[in-house]
Design a protein around this nucleic acid. Structure first.
Lengths: 216, 216
DNA sequence: CACGGTATCACGTAAATACGTGAGATTGTA
DNA sequence: TACAATCTCACGTATTTACGTGATACCGTG
């Protein structure tokens, strides 16, 4: 760790064995000191409320009994806005990676990671990175791609896509007609075709579907 | 590398020095063989068209002269759908990370990565991961969070959010009124307030803004 | 208590939308 | 060549929307 300043860490993990193990690993370094190790979000929150320090880094289990790690993130963010939260996960687990990202997690630590990699991960966090192993990263990328890839094309023609885009941008039929040099009637017709293909019966629904499914 | 099967790789990188260096690194391993090293997307595409093999992995510079690495991705995906594409980037560079993700990149390799990490990265790709360093990962997470976090709340009241939600779902004022037991006039009034707060003048614009900025 | 914010409701009108129905022109394809 | 798809335009009408301009009522705060 190039920076020789101290980093404070807290651990939130219900499994006592893993909590102790983690604690031992962290205490190996002179540059880290663990301010607390809790077995539940609730306990960690109580402690943060009682004291007035904020840890630099929090290692928090994702699957906690009671308040889950994910539910806990917003609370932690409120009590300690600058604390970077690393989620502890088993394997390369599941969907709630998405939830955790949305809530503002700063990294992922798989539980069977060897000690030296854990230390390296802490260092990366300190450097402003968001460490995660390649499998977690894969899941994140897949999520991303799913969000931006059109679910279905609905066989919209070029003209229809063009007009749909203008509709989404909030233009009226008359305005659209002027913009692309058509009769308002023609625009009307195109929009009807769009409605048919998208199976909707109103502008709002078409706009919603277009944006949500990344049409055009 | 636990799997002892051969992996085929191609390199697309305009800087000759780095291309050669990379080639040397890869050739160290008996489990890899490099099917080609090109200085442009165009050259790589020509080669893929001419031959009928598909490499397992493609290492492609993001900032290529002519067709950029990002523009190249869709072509490559077409010619070699199963090839996993790793983007080569300088530093932890910029915004087009987003573009690359959308296009379907499977990982990021920063150019000053030491040889052993490059080999490890290849192994991770082979295991189905999407390797990237912590800084790149941070950018991805930040992007993600920006996508799902409301830009601004616009001070919508609870009632207004409720009605906005129904509007987004494509309901008419009359229907909304029936659903939440109000006079259509009241719904109309609420919607006017929503328009004022969102600074729009049409249902479509309100819907678009609501969805895009994750209101409600 | 007065005031601001919220929620409720009403009347009226001009504009926009949704949709039925029909039709000519072009273009690619079977 | 015939057919399907696309793009273009038109008339008419019922419904919906957008907005001006009111009003009453509740509630919390200064």
């Amino acid at each position: 760790m190039e920076k020789r300043r101290h980093l404070s860490v807290i651990i939130v993990e219900d499994n006592m064995f893993f909590r102790k193990t983690l604690l031992n690993v962290l205490e190996q370094s002179q540059h880290l000191h663990c301010l607390g190790a809790y077995e539940s979000c609730e306990a960690a929150i109580r402690s943060l409320k009682r004291n007035d320090w904020q840890p630099d880094i929090m290692l928090m289990d994702i699957g906690l009994p009671g308040m889950s790690g994910i539910e806990g993130i917003p609370h932690m963010k409120k009590l300690a806005p600058d604390t970077r939260i690393v989620m502890l996960t088993i394997h390369e687990d599941h969907d709630n990676i998405f939830q955790a990202i949305c809530a503002g997690a700063s990294g992922y630590l798989v539980k069977d990671t060897p000690p030296d990699e854990i230390m390296e991960l802490i260092a990366q966090i300190d450097r402003g990175g968001a460490p995660m192993n390649a499998h977690i990263a894969k899941k994140v990328l897949d999520l991303f791609q799913k969000m931006v890839t059109p679910t279905e094309s609905y066989n919209l023609t070029q003209r229809e896509k063009e007009i749909l885009k203008l509709v989404v941008d909030g233009h009226s039929n008359r305005t659209i007609a002027e913009m692309i040099f058509l009769s308002p009637h023609t625009v009307d017709t195109h929009i009807r075709h769009i409605y048919n293909k998208l199976e909707v019966h109103s502008r709002s629904s078409a706009v919603a579907k277009a944006i949500r499914e990344n049409l055009f």
